[in-house]
């Protein structure tokens, strides 16, 4: 589609839509610098809530736990998701294919309360029968996060593999590379950007999860969203605004960085393709 004759109404709607999406975030950021404890009445500029946030030991412990959990979950989920994506995109219709495809899509649409409850009941039952996992904590959180994050990674990887020219893999095999070598030397390097995207997605999902974590965390482990949720339930606090600002800043930096990088390589690539087309054979 090109930009031929676009109704001005559409542009207005786009503007409104983006305002709707971003205004709450902008407001959140503005009021993180508010002097007053009331999050909605402006009383002058201050950074004191940031200092308070950094002195909140519970918050920091929770944040540290969430970060470690997200790193571990995203890595395992990326590995598992790549395997699952390979199965979906490259193994054709084996027995149990439908079950497998169903299992991959289920966590994407399953209400989190159900996933969380079922995970918890699994862990409790397993502990009772085989004595493992011993209690709930980081391990159970990790298993739960890997499971639902892997499904998201698998979707990203599957669609990347489906759009990849399969004859590239066949060519490698034809030139003497056995299947595992084909995967490590050809497939994986080519889908690496998708794996990175999947990892990032898993990382954010894990970092952000509240419901599933609340079920499987147990009394000992409190993740950042759990901490935020309990403090928000007690009422809004500028400290949370400060936290939100940091999160938004972090995400936008990542996004802008990735965006610039992608834009640059894309432009470079286009330029090179044009140059190649000008070359005479």
């Amino acid at each position: 589609m090109s930009a031929t004759r676009r109704s001005p109404l559409l542009s207005v709607w786009l503007l409104l839509g983006y305002t709707f999406l971003y205004a709450p975030i902008v407001i959140l950021i503005i009021f993180s610098f508010n002097e007053s404890k009331l999050v909605t009445v402006w009383a002058g500029f201050s950074t004191k809530w940031y200092w308070e946030l950094f002195q909140d030991r519970q918050m920091l412990t929770a944040a540290w736990l969430s970060l470690r959990l997200a790193l571990m979950s995203a890595t395992a989920a990326a590995a598992l998701g790549v395997l699952a994506g390979l199965v979906m995109a490259r193994f054709g219709r084996f027995r149990g294919h439908n079950l497998f495809a169903g299992m991959i899509t289920a966590p994407l649409v399953m209400p989190e309360v159900i996933t969380g409850l079922s995970m918890l009941l699994l862990f409790v039952s397993m502990e009772k029968v085989i004595g493992w996992p011993d209690g709930r904590g980081l391990l159970t959180l990790w298993i739960a996060h890997v499971t639902f994050c892997a499904a998201f990674v698998a979707v990203v990887i599957t669609s990347r593999l489906r759009e990849m020219d399969e004859s590239i893999e066949e060519a490698a095999m034809d030139l003497g590379a056995p299947p595992f070598k084909v995967f490590t030397a050809i497939t994986l390097p080519i889908i690496m950007p998708a794996v990175a995207a999947g990892w990032l997605l898993a990382f954010t999902l894990s970092l952000d999860d509240l419901v599933i974590s609340s079920f499987v965390a147990g009394p000992g482990a409190t993740t950042l969203p759990m901490k935020v949720f309990s403090s928000v339930r007690l009422g809004a606090s500028p400290k949370i605004n400060a936290l939100a600002t940091i999160v938004v800043l972090f995400v936008s930096l990542c996004a802008v960085g990735a965006g610039i990088l992608m834009f640059r390589t894309e432009r470079q690539r286009k330029f090179e393709i044009q140059a190649a087309m000008r070359d005479t054979d």
């Binding site: 020219d165 004859s167 066949e170 490698a172 034809d174 590379a177 080519i190």
Partner: peptide, 20 residues
């Protein structure tokens, strides 16, 4: 004999050059 052990090589329709 698996494709990777055959004394046969193929030039693919899309050329299938390794992009990386």
């Amino acid at each position: 004999i698996q494709p990777y052990n055959r004394p046969v090589n193929m030039m693919f329709q899309s050329y299938a050059l390794f992009p990386h």
